[in-house]
Amino acid sequence: MEFLTLNKIDVTYDKKKTVLKGLNLEVKEGELVSLLGPSGCGKTTTLRVIAGFIEPSGGEFILDGRNYTKVPVHKRNFGIVFQSYALFPHLNVYDNVAFGLKLQKLKKAEIKRKVEDMLEICGLSEFADRFPGQMSGGQRQRVALARAMVIQPKLLLLDEPLSNLDAKLRINMRVEIKRLQKKFGITMIFVTHDQEECFSISDKVAVMNNGLIEQYDTPENIYLKPKTEFVARFIGFNNFIPLKKQSGGIFITERKELIQVEQETKLEEGLGTIRPDDILLADETVSENVMNATVGVRTFLGRSYQYEVDSTAGKLVVNAPIGKVYEPGDRVRVQLPKNKIIIVRKSM
């Protein structure tokens, strides 16, 4: 039994614009799941449906065996961390964190104990009397987290919580979030467009596009075995060769070249994809998956040169070590190692 289930959620604006179409998602208790995708893919809408800010036009949302689809926001008891932190500007840090507890009508002493514990855990004890306007972005972020966690929510929702922080702080904060998540064993849904951030802390990642989840898997599987062209492009694959299955591990390109692929797939037809780093500029001795190519543009990446080459299988981007430099127009042989090629489904 899953802890959280989104079942065929539809969201439509103005009866015309469909944002989510039959979205399904399942999350286990204590997992940190990221919704990853470009802006406009529906990830924030999904989060807002879970939070209760948007009522879906179809489908249901079950949490811990209870149907939450129509439960109003203030009765859900979910913690939410907003992109803008949304701290209460007129309250100091202590009162910001105590806000939810006061509404639960707890005894004063209990509120005090809980707030102080939470401030301690988040490293905010010395800032209790400060107002949000007097704090840095990172500190406000901690207050937002403390305020959402102190009510012991069933679910913690984070909407691009790190996007307003500078790079160094972002890395610290994501470690912090992961630490708190492990400490409290809380189930988290994390929305982001930053794949590094998302891979580093998530147990599972849902890559979204056009209101649908393209792939829902562990970060490792998303990174190493993308299933669709969209996912592959999103995580940095940029060579795509249209292929048809001939037999077993043999595929055929549009120009009738045979390519061996180690990965097993049920797809009869798709795109062979490979990272620029994995393509080799081959010498005469190898013969497997080798094709002739002409060097086009060369750019310097620091650790390597990136070449755009025109091969018999189409244009390819290749990263090659800086040892040997090729000039535009040079004839080369490129090798696509069979264990590095992944067959993905073509995306619309």
Binding site: I80, F99, L103
Partner: peptide, 22 residues
């Protein structure tokens, strides 16, 4: 920033009460 109001809702504050409190 109306997400401040949404934050109050999420912490258990009803809509009318959030309007006056936040």
């Amino acid at each position: 920033d109306f997400s401040i109001e949404e934050a109050a809702w999420s912490l258990g504050c009803g809509k009318v009460s959030a309007f006056f409190k936040v």
